[in-house]
Amino acid sequence: MKAFFKRYRVFLLLIFINIVIGLALPDIGLKSLSLTKQNFIEMISVIPPIFILLGLLDVWVDRATMMKYTGKGSGLKGVLIAFLLGSVAAGPLYAAFPIAGIMLKKGSSLFNVFIFIGAWSTTKIPMLTFEAASLGLTFTLTRLALSIIGILIIAVTAEKALNLEQQKKIYELNQ
C-alpha cells in the first residue's frame, strides 16, 4: 500500500490539483476531465497491441540477433534497419520509448536507437500520407527531407554528448 502511494504520488497529486481547479473553475475542470477520458480511451485502444508486440520481441528476438543487425558494428545496415523500424510504426512517440528500451536491452547501439526514435517521431509512413493529404505534398516532402537530416544530426549530437560512463548508465537503466 505504501509502495503504491509512493509510485503513484505524482498521479494522485495531479488528480487533487484537477479537483481543486474543477471546484474553482468548473468549466475548465469539466473540460479537462472529458479530455482526459477521451485521451485515455484513445491510448488504451493503441497500447495493448504495442505492448504485446513488445513482449513477443523480448522473448523471441535474442540479444545476438539484435546486436548483429542494429548493434555497434552493424554500420549503415543497422542505421537503415533502425530507421525503417521507426518509420513503419504506428502510435504516439511515448509508445516508442519502451521499445527503445528493449532494443537497448538487446544490445542495439545508442546511435541506432536514437535513429529509431527520430524516425518514429517524424517519418512514420502512415502519418506522412495523412500529412500530405492535409498540408500538401510540397510541405510534406520538404519537411521529410529536412527531418531525415535532422534525425541524423540529433542522433549524432545525443550520442556525442554522452561519455562512455553515461552511455553505460543508459544501458543499465534498461536491463
Binding site: 495531479l14 484537477n18 479530455l35 482526459t36 485521451n39
Partner: peptide
C-alpha cells in the same frame, strides 16, 4: 502514463 493523461487534459483545457 496516468499522470501524463491528466496533464494533457489540463493543458488542453486551459
Amino acid at each position: 502514463f496516468l499522470s501524463i493523461l491528466i496533464i494533457i487534459g489540463l493543458v488542453l483545457a486551459i
